[in-house]
Simulated scan of single mutants.
Amino acid sequence: MSAAMITTSVVETLRAWRRSAPGPLWLAGPVLLIVAIPVADWFLPPDIHLAHLLVVAVAVTAVGTGPRATALIGALAVLALVVAGLERQTLVTESVLVELSALLAVCAFLVLFTRLRDRRERELVRVRSVSDAAQRVVLRPLPERAGPVTLASHYRSAEADAIIGGDLYAAARIPGSTRLLIGDVRGKGLSSISDTAIVLGAFRAAAHRMIPLPELVAYIEDAVRWGLAEFSEPEEDAAERFVTAAVMDIPDNEPVVHLVSCGHPPPLLLGGRTRAALALTVPEPSPPLGLGVSPAEANSADGADGCYLPATFPFEHGHRLVLYTDGVSEARNADGDFYPLAERATAWADKAPGPLVERLAADVRAYTGGRLNDDMAMIVVQRD
Protein backbone atom coordinates (compact mmCIF):
# COMPACT_ATOMS: atom_id res chain seq x y z
CA MET A 1 0.00 0.00 0.00
CA SER A 2 1.38 3.41 -0.98
CA ALA A 3 2.01 6.25 1.45
CA ALA A 4 -0.76 8.28 -0.21
CA MET A 5 -3.27 5.48 0.32
CA ILE A 6 -2.21 5.10 3.97
CA THR A 7 -2.49 8.85 4.57
CA THR A 8 -5.93 8.98 2.94
CA SER A 9 -7.09 6.03 5.04
CA VAL A 10 -5.87 7.63 8.29
CA VAL A 11 -7.52 10.97 7.45
CA GLU A 12 -10.82 9.31 6.58
CA THR A 13 -10.67 7.25 9.80
CA LEU A 14 -10.09 10.36 11.91
CA ARG A 15 -12.92 12.18 10.16
CA ALA A 16 -15.29 9.26 10.68
CA TRP A 17 -14.20 8.99 14.32
CA ARG A 18 -14.78 12.70 14.86
CA ARG A 19 -18.20 12.59 13.18
CA SER A 20 -19.33 9.55 15.16
CA ALA A 21 -17.95 10.65 18.55
CA PRO A 22 -20.57 12.33 20.79
CA GLY A 23 -19.47 15.82 21.79
CA PRO A 24 -19.81 15.46 25.59
CA LEU A 25 -18.11 12.07 25.57
CA TRP A 26 -15.21 13.38 23.49
CA LEU A 27 -14.76 16.33 25.89
CA ALA A 28 -14.74 14.15 29.00
CA GLY A 29 -11.06 13.25 28.65
CA PRO A 30 -9.76 16.84 28.21
CA VAL A 31 -11.91 18.08 31.11
CA LEU A 32 -10.66 15.33 33.44
CA LEU A 33 -7.08 16.14 32.44
CA ILE A 34 -7.59 19.85 33.16
CA VAL A 35 -9.00 19.04 36.59
CA ALA A 36 -6.38 16.42 37.40
CA ILE A 37 -3.30 18.56 36.67
CA PRO A 38 -3.88 21.28 39.34
CA VAL A 39 -4.87 18.57 41.85
CA ALA A 40 -1.71 16.59 41.08
CA ASP A 41 0.43 19.74 41.35
CA TRP A 42 -0.87 20.24 44.89
CA PHE A 43 0.65 16.91 46.01
CA LEU A 44 3.80 16.79 43.88
CA PRO A 45 7.18 18.15 45.00
CA PRO A 46 7.98 21.77 44.02
CA ASP A 47 10.51 20.68 41.40
CA ILE A 48 7.91 18.61 39.48
CA HIS A 49 5.44 20.67 37.45
CA LEU A 50 2.73 19.18 35.16
CA ALA A 51 1.10 22.36 33.89
CA HIS A 52 2.73 22.06 30.47
CA LEU A 53 0.55 18.99 29.84
CA LEU A 54 -2.55 21.19 29.70
CA VAL A 55 -1.85 21.78 26.00
CA VAL A 56 -2.61 18.09 25.41
CA ALA A 57 -6.21 18.63 26.49
CA VAL A 58 -6.62 21.50 24.02
CA ALA A 59 -5.00 19.52 21.18
CA VAL A 60 -7.24 16.48 21.77
CA THR A 61 -10.29 18.75 21.77
CA ALA A 62 -9.22 20.34 18.49
CA VAL A 63 -8.97 16.91 16.85
CA GLY A 64 -12.46 15.84 17.87
CA THR A 65 -14.57 19.01 17.94
CA GLY A 66 -14.98 22.46 16.46
CA PRO A 67 -13.68 25.92 17.29
CA ARG A 68 -16.21 26.69 20.05
CA ALA A 69 -15.42 23.61 22.10
CA THR A 70 -11.70 24.14 21.49
CA ALA A 71 -11.97 27.75 22.74
CA LEU A 72 -13.88 26.58 25.84
CA ILE A 73 -11.35 23.88 26.72
CA GLY A 74 -8.53 26.35 26.01
CA ALA A 75 -10.03 28.83 28.46
CA LEU A 76 -10.36 26.11 31.09
CA ALA A 77 -6.75 25.06 30.49
CA VAL A 78 -5.55 28.64 30.98
CA LEU A 79 -7.65 28.87 34.15
CA ALA A 80 -6.17 25.60 35.41
CA LEU A 81 -2.65 26.92 34.81
CA VAL A 82 -3.49 30.07 36.77
CA VAL A 83 -4.90 27.95 39.61
CA ALA A 84 -1.81 25.76 39.65
CA GLY A 85 0.39 28.88 39.79
CA LEU A 86 -1.62 30.32 42.67
CA GLU A 87 -1.40 27.03 44.55
CA ARG A 88 2.37 27.10 44.36
CA GLN A 89 2.54 30.90 44.71
CA THR A 90 4.54 31.03 41.46
CA LEU A 91 2.03 32.77 39.19
CA VAL A 92 4.18 35.86 38.61
CA THR A 93 7.41 33.95 38.11
CA GLU A 94 9.09 34.04 34.73
CA SER A 95 8.63 30.29 34.14
CA VAL A 96 4.87 30.33 34.73
CA LEU A 97 4.38 33.51 32.70
CA VAL A 98 6.20 31.91 29.76
CA GLU A 99 4.05 28.78 30.09
CA LEU A 100 0.90 30.92 30.25
CA SER A 101 1.88 32.90 27.16
CA ALA A 102 2.73 29.73 25.24
CA LEU A 103 -0.56 28.10 26.22
CA LEU A 104 -2.54 31.17 25.12
CA ALA A 105 -0.73 31.18 21.77
CA VAL A 106 -1.33 27.47 21.22
CA CYS A 107 -5.02 27.80 22.12
CA ALA A 108 -5.47 30.71 19.71
CA PHE A 109 -3.74 28.76 16.94
CA LEU A 110 -5.85 25.63 17.51
CA VAL A 111 -9.09 27.62 17.53
CA LEU A 112 -8.09 29.23 14.23
CA PHE A 113 -7.06 25.84 12.84
CA THR A 114 -10.36 24.16 13.73
CA ARG A 115 -12.30 27.07 12.23
CA LEU A 116 -10.41 26.86 8.94
CA ARG A 117 -10.63 23.06 8.90
CA ASP A 118 -14.40 23.06 9.40
CA ARG A 119 -14.84 25.68 6.68
CA ARG A 120 -12.68 23.62 4.31
CA GLU A 121 -14.63 20.44 5.07
CA ARG A 122 -17.94 22.19 4.37
CA GLU A 123 -16.56 23.41 1.04
CA LEU A 124 -15.35 19.90 0.18
CA VAL A 125 -18.76 18.43 1.00
CA ARG A 126 -20.48 20.95 -1.28
CA VAL A 127 -18.01 20.41 -4.11
CA ARG A 128 -18.18 16.64 -3.72
CA SER A 129 -21.99 16.63 -3.80
CA VAL A 130 -22.04 18.75 -6.97
CA SER A 131 -19.36 16.57 -8.58
CA ASP A 132 -21.17 13.35 -7.70
CA ALA A 133 -24.46 14.68 -9.09
CA ALA A 134 -22.81 15.82 -12.32
CA GLN A 135 -21.00 12.53 -12.82
CA ARG A 136 -24.16 10.51 -12.17
CA VAL A 137 -25.97 12.55 -14.81
CA VAL A 138 -23.24 11.68 -17.33
CA LEU A 139 -23.08 7.97 -16.46
CA ARG A 140 -26.60 6.98 -15.48
CA PRO A 141 -27.07 3.63 -13.72
CA LEU A 142 -28.31 0.85 -15.97
CA PRO A 143 -31.82 -0.48 -15.34
CA GLU A 144 -32.05 -3.92 -13.76
CA ARG A 145 -34.34 -5.04 -16.59
CA ALA A 146 -34.79 -3.92 -20.18
CA GLY A 147 -37.44 -5.93 -21.98
CA PRO A 148 -36.63 -9.64 -21.73
CA VAL A 149 -33.04 -9.13 -20.53
CA THR A 150 -31.59 -8.65 -17.07
CA LEU A 151 -28.68 -6.23 -16.65
CA ALA A 152 -26.03 -5.91 -13.96
CA SER A 153 -23.05 -3.56 -14.09
CA HIS A 154 -19.95 -2.54 -12.20
CA TYR A 155 -17.80 0.55 -12.61
CA ARG A 156 -14.63 1.71 -10.95
CA SER A 157 -12.57 4.72 -11.91
CA ALA A 158 -8.79 4.77 -11.73
CA GLU A 159 -9.04 8.23 -10.14
CA ALA A 160 -9.53 8.31 -6.39
CA ASP A 161 -12.86 9.86 -5.30
CA ALA A 162 -14.19 9.83 -8.89
CA ILE A 163 -17.36 8.01 -9.90
CA ILE A 164 -16.62 7.86 -13.61
CA GLY A 165 -13.67 8.22 -15.92
CA GLY A 166 -12.84 7.08 -19.44
CA ASP A 167 -15.01 3.94 -19.51
CA LEU A 168 -18.69 4.15 -20.33
CA TYR A 169 -21.86 2.15 -20.82
CA ALA A 170 -25.51 2.83 -21.57
CA ALA A 171 -28.74 1.03 -22.45
CA ALA A 172 -31.81 2.05 -24.42
CA ARG A 173 -35.14 0.41 -25.19
CA ILE A 174 -36.84 0.66 -28.58
CA PRO A 175 -39.96 -1.22 -29.63
CA GLY A 176 -38.96 -4.85 -30.02
CA SER A 177 -35.32 -4.74 -28.84
CA THR A 178 -32.74 -3.53 -26.32
CA ARG A 179 -29.66 -1.61 -27.37
CA LEU A 180 -26.44 -1.55 -25.36
CA LEU A 181 -23.22 0.41 -25.58
CA ILE A 182 -19.94 -0.16 -23.79
CA GLY A 183 -16.85 1.87 -24.61
CA ASP A 184 -13.44 3.02 -23.54
CA VAL A 185 -12.11 6.53 -24.18
CA ARG A 186 -8.41 6.83 -24.86
CA GLY A 187 -7.01 8.00 -21.55
CA LYS A 188 -8.39 7.48 -18.08
CA GLY A 189 -9.78 9.24 -15.07
CA LEU A 190 -11.28 12.70 -14.85
CA SER A 191 -9.42 14.06 -17.86
CA SER A 192 -11.46 11.84 -20.19
CA ILE A 193 -14.94 12.66 -18.84
CA SER A 194 -15.65 15.19 -21.61
CA ASP A 195 -15.10 12.53 -24.28
CA THR A 196 -17.21 10.10 -22.26
CA ALA A 197 -20.05 12.63 -22.19
CA ILE A 198 -19.86 13.14 -25.97
CA VAL A 199 -20.22 9.42 -26.71
CA LEU A 200 -23.01 8.85 -24.19
CA GLY A 201 -24.91 11.92 -25.37
CA ALA A 202 -24.74 10.78 -28.99
CA PHE A 203 -25.90 7.25 -28.11
CA ARG A 204 -28.82 8.48 -26.03
CA ALA A 205 -29.89 10.91 -28.73
CA ALA A 206 -29.97 8.28 -31.50
CA ALA A 207 -30.49 4.88 -29.81
CA HIS A 208 -34.24 5.43 -29.42
CA ARG A 209 -34.71 6.05 -33.12
CA MET A 210 -35.89 3.18 -35.27
CA ILE A 211 -32.73 3.14 -37.37
CA PRO A 212 -30.53 0.17 -38.24
CA LEU A 213 -27.50 -0.57 -36.09
CA PRO A 214 -24.94 0.61 -38.72
CA GLU A 215 -26.68 3.99 -38.98
CA LEU A 216 -26.70 4.30 -35.20
CA VAL A 217 -22.95 3.71 -35.03
CA ALA A 218 -22.38 6.13 -37.93
CA TYR A 219 -24.35 8.79 -36.04
CA ILE A 220 -22.21 8.26 -32.94
CA GLU A 221 -19.05 8.40 -35.07
CA ASP A 222 -20.16 11.73 -36.56
CA ALA A 223 -20.87 13.17 -33.09
CA VAL A 224 -17.57 11.92 -31.71
CA ARG A 225 -15.59 13.39 -34.62
CA TRP A 226 -17.26 16.75 -34.13
CA GLY A 227 -16.92 16.66 -30.34
CA LEU A 228 -13.27 15.67 -30.30
CA ALA A 229 -12.42 18.43 -32.78
CA GLU A 230 -14.62 21.05 -31.11
CA PHE A 231 -13.44 20.50 -27.55
CA SER A 232 -9.75 19.83 -28.17
CA GLU A 233 -7.27 22.24 -26.65
CA PRO A 234 -4.98 24.05 -29.13
CA GLU A 235 -2.00 21.92 -28.10
CA GLU A 236 -3.96 18.67 -28.38
CA ASP A 237 -4.10 16.50 -31.47
CA ALA A 238 -7.69 15.38 -32.08
CA ALA A 239 -6.42 12.50 -34.20
CA GLU A 240 -4.83 11.00 -31.09
CA ARG A 241 -8.18 10.88 -29.28
CA PHE A 242 -10.55 8.02 -30.02
CA VAL A 243 -13.04 5.69 -28.36
CA THR A 244 -13.26 1.92 -28.66
CA ALA A 245 -16.85 0.73 -28.41
CA ALA A 246 -19.15 -2.24 -28.81
CA VAL A 247 -22.74 -1.47 -29.81
CA MET A 248 -25.30 -4.24 -29.80
CA ASP A 249 -28.96 -4.85 -30.44
CA ILE A 250 -30.83 -7.68 -28.67
CA PRO A 251 -34.19 -8.45 -30.31
CA ASP A 252 -37.01 -9.43 -27.96
CA ASN A 253 -38.42 -12.27 -30.09
CA GLU A 254 -35.30 -13.64 -31.75
CA PRO A 255 -32.57 -15.58 -29.85
CA VAL A 256 -29.66 -13.60 -31.32
CA VAL A 257 -27.55 -10.53 -30.63
CA HIS A 258 -26.37 -8.15 -33.34
CA LEU A 259 -22.97 -6.64 -32.61
CA VAL A 260 -20.88 -3.86 -34.13
CA SER A 261 -17.37 -3.69 -32.71
CA CYS A 262 -15.33 -0.53 -33.08
CA GLY A 263 -11.97 -1.83 -31.94
CA HIS A 264 -13.36 -3.01 -28.60
CA PRO A 265 -12.54 -6.28 -26.76
CA PRO A 266 -15.01 -9.03 -27.77
CA PRO A 267 -17.84 -9.84 -25.35
CA LEU A 268 -17.90 -13.28 -23.73
CA LEU A 269 -20.88 -15.61 -24.17
CA LEU A 270 -21.68 -17.92 -21.25
CA GLY A 271 -24.10 -20.83 -21.45
CA GLY A 272 -23.55 -21.90 -25.03
CA ARG A 273 -23.03 -25.44 -26.26
CA THR A 274 -19.60 -25.56 -24.65
CA ARG A 275 -19.14 -24.76 -21.00
CA ALA A 276 -16.18 -22.49 -21.71
CA ALA A 277 -16.76 -18.78 -22.29
CA LEU A 278 -16.95 -18.00 -26.00
CA ALA A 279 -15.46 -14.73 -27.26
CA LEU A 280 -17.83 -13.10 -29.79
CA THR A 281 -15.18 -11.94 -32.24
CA VAL A 282 -16.59 -9.83 -35.07
CA PRO A 283 -15.20 -10.99 -38.46
CA GLU A 284 -14.97 -7.42 -39.79
CA PRO A 285 -14.41 -5.01 -36.88
CA SER A 286 -14.71 -1.28 -37.48
CA PRO A 287 -12.17 1.40 -36.53
CA PRO A 288 -12.54 3.05 -33.10
CA LEU A 289 -14.95 5.95 -32.91
CA GLY A 290 -13.20 9.12 -33.97
CA LEU A 291 -11.05 7.24 -36.48
CA GLY A 292 -13.82 5.80 -38.67
CA VAL A 293 -15.55 7.06 -41.79
CA SER A 294 -16.04 10.78 -42.30
CA PRO A 295 -19.56 12.27 -42.38
CA ALA A 296 -19.37 12.57 -46.19
CA GLU A 297 -18.52 8.88 -46.53
CA ALA A 298 -21.22 7.89 -44.08
CA ASN A 299 -23.81 9.81 -46.14
CA SER A 300 -22.79 8.06 -49.36
CA ALA A 301 -24.70 5.13 -50.81
CA ASP A 302 -22.93 2.45 -48.79
CA GLY A 303 -20.77 4.50 -46.42
CA ALA A 304 -22.24 3.52 -43.04
CA ASP A 305 -23.39 0.07 -44.13
CA GLY A 306 -20.01 -0.69 -45.66
CA CYS A 307 -17.97 0.40 -42.65
CA TYR A 308 -20.11 -0.71 -39.71
CA LEU A 309 -21.02 -4.30 -40.49
CA PRO A 310 -22.97 -6.00 -37.67
CA ALA A 311 -22.22 -9.60 -36.79
CA THR A 312 -24.99 -11.87 -35.50
CA PHE A 313 -24.42 -14.43 -32.74
CA PRO A 314 -26.78 -16.85 -30.96
CA PHE A 315 -28.10 -15.50 -27.66
CA GLU A 316 -30.71 -17.88 -26.31
CA HIS A 317 -32.77 -17.98 -23.12
CA GLY A 318 -30.57 -18.32 -20.05
CA HIS A 319 -27.39 -17.29 -21.88
CA ARG A 320 -25.27 -14.48 -20.46
CA LEU A 321 -23.06 -11.90 -22.11
CA VAL A 322 -20.10 -10.41 -20.28
CA LEU A 323 -19.18 -6.98 -21.69
CA TYR A 324 -16.01 -5.37 -20.37
CA THR A 325 -13.29 -2.83 -21.04
CA ASP A 326 -9.56 -3.39 -21.19
CA GLY A 327 -9.28 -2.22 -17.60
CA VAL A 328 -10.52 -5.73 -16.78
CA SER A 329 -8.87 -7.88 -19.45
CA GLU A 330 -5.52 -6.09 -19.18
CA ALA A 331 -5.36 -5.91 -15.40
CA ARG A 332 -2.09 -7.43 -14.19
CA ASN A 333 -0.91 -9.12 -11.02
CA ALA A 334 2.43 -8.57 -9.31
CA ASP A 335 4.13 -10.90 -11.82
CA GLY A 336 2.79 -8.95 -14.80
CA ASP A 337 0.29 -11.63 -15.88
CA PHE A 338 -3.02 -10.53 -17.42
CA TYR A 339 -6.24 -11.26 -15.58
CA PRO A 340 -7.76 -14.56 -16.88
CA LEU A 341 -11.24 -13.17 -17.47
CA ALA A 342 -12.55 -16.00 -19.68
CA GLU A 343 -11.34 -18.63 -17.21
CA ARG A 344 -12.91 -16.92 -14.19
CA ALA A 345 -16.16 -16.16 -16.01
CA THR A 346 -16.42 -19.81 -17.01
CA ALA A 347 -15.87 -20.93 -13.41
CA TRP A 348 -18.73 -18.75 -12.16
CA ALA A 349 -21.02 -19.11 -15.19
CA ASP A 350 -23.89 -20.46 -13.06
CA LYS A 351 -24.20 -17.22 -11.06
CA ALA A 352 -26.95 -14.69 -11.70
CA PRO A 353 -25.91 -11.42 -13.42
CA GLY A 354 -25.64 -9.36 -10.23
CA PRO A 355 -23.55 -11.82 -8.20
CA LEU A 356 -21.47 -12.67 -11.27
CA VAL A 357 -20.41 -9.08 -12.05
CA GLU A 358 -19.65 -8.35 -8.40
CA ARG A 359 -17.68 -11.58 -8.04
CA LEU A 360 -15.60 -10.74 -11.11
CA ALA A 361 -15.00 -7.17 -9.94
CA ALA A 362 -13.87 -8.34 -6.50
CA ASP A 363 -11.63 -10.96 -8.10
CA VAL A 364 -9.97 -8.35 -10.33
CA ARG A 365 -9.19 -6.22 -7.29
CA ALA A 366 -7.77 -9.21 -5.44
CA TYR A 367 -5.77 -10.30 -8.50
CA THR A 368 -4.13 -6.87 -8.85
CA GLY A 369 -3.64 -6.37 -5.13
CA GLY A 370 -6.00 -3.40 -5.15
CA ARG A 371 -3.89 -1.47 -7.67
CA LEU A 372 -6.14 -0.22 -10.46
CA ASN A 373 -4.10 1.43 -13.22
CA ASP A 374 -7.02 1.94 -15.59
CA ASP A 375 -10.76 2.53 -15.42
CA MET A 376 -12.83 -0.64 -15.23
CA ALA A 377 -16.36 -1.29 -16.50
CA MET A 378 -18.35 -4.52 -16.82
CA ILE A 379 -21.88 -5.46 -17.80
CA VAL A 380 -23.50 -8.88 -17.51
CA VAL A 381 -26.57 -9.37 -19.72
CA GLN A 382 -28.90 -12.36 -19.39
CA ARG A 383 -31.79 -13.25 -21.67
CA ASP A 384 -34.66 -14.42 -19.43
Results as ranks from 00 to 15, higher is better:
164 I>A: 07
92 V>Q: 11
153 S>T: 13
111 V>E: 03
171 A>Q: 09
170 A>C: 03
117 R>S: 11
119 R>M: 11
131 S>R: 12
117 R>W: 15
117 R>V: 12
125 V>F: 09
99 E>Y: 01
138 V>W: 03
109 F>I: 04
113 F>H: 08
136 R>F: 06
112 L>Q: 07
104 L>P: 02
123 E>Y: 08
119 R>K: 13
146 A>H: 04
163 I>P: 00
152 A>S: 15
167 D>G: 02
161 D>R: 11
172 A>M: 12
154 H>A: 14
96 V>P: 00
97 L>R: 09
99 E>D: 11
106 V>R: 01
172 A>D: 09
131 S>Q: 13
125 V>P: 08
140 R>F: 03
116 L>S: 10
126 R>E: 15
108 A>P: 01
91 L>R: 05
153 S>K: 05
145 R>A: 08
132 D>V: 12
99 E>I: 02
144 E>K: 01
114 T>M: 10
163 I>F: 10
104 L>K: 01
93 T>G: 11
142 L>K: 02
173 R>T: 14
139 L>R: 05
110 L>E: 06
127 V>K: 12
141 P>S: 03
152 A>C: 14
116 L>K: 06
169 Y>C: 09
134 A>F: 10
111 V>Y: 02
150 T>L: 12
163 I>R: 15
122 R>G: 09
136 R>G: 13
154 H>P: 00
137 V>K: 03
144 E>Q: 02
115 R>E: 13
105 A>V: 09
100 L>F: 04
114 T>N: 08
158 A>V: 15
110 L>S: 05
133 A>W: 11
139 L>H: 11
98 V>L: 06
108 A>H: 03
109 F>N: 00
166 G>H: 12
135 Q>H: 04
167 D>E: 03
160 A>S: 14
104 L>R: 00
154 H>V: 14
154 H>Y: 15
118 D>I: 07
113 F>W: 13
121 E>V: 08
169 Y>T: 03
173 R>E: 15
97 L>K: 00
138 V>H: 00
149 V>A: 04
147 G>Y: 00
145 R>L: 03
172 A>F: 04
151 L>C: 04
149 V>S: 10
115 R>W: 14
114 T>C: 10
135 Q>K: 09
126 R>H: 15
159 E>R: 09
133 A>R: 13
159 E>K: 06
113 F>D: 15
110 L>K: 02
90 T>W: 09
169 Y>F: 15
159 E>V: 07
120 R>N: 10
119 R>C: 08
162 A>N: 07
165 G>Y: 01
101 S>D: 12
98 V>N: 04
173 R>I: 14
94 E>V: 05
117 R>G: 08
125 V>Q: 15
123 E>W: 00
112 L>Y: 10
123 E>Q: 13
104 L>W: 01
143 P>K: 01
94 E>P: 02
126 R>P: 11
119 R>Q: 15
118 D>S: 10
116 L>Y: 10
145 R>G: 03
132 D>S: 07
122 R>C: 00
156 R>K: 11
138 V>P: 01
142 L>P: 03
125 V>R: 14
130 V>D: 11
118 D>P: 00
125 V>G: 07
105 A>D: 08
165 G>F: 02
158 A>F: 06
101 S>E: 12
126 R>W: 11
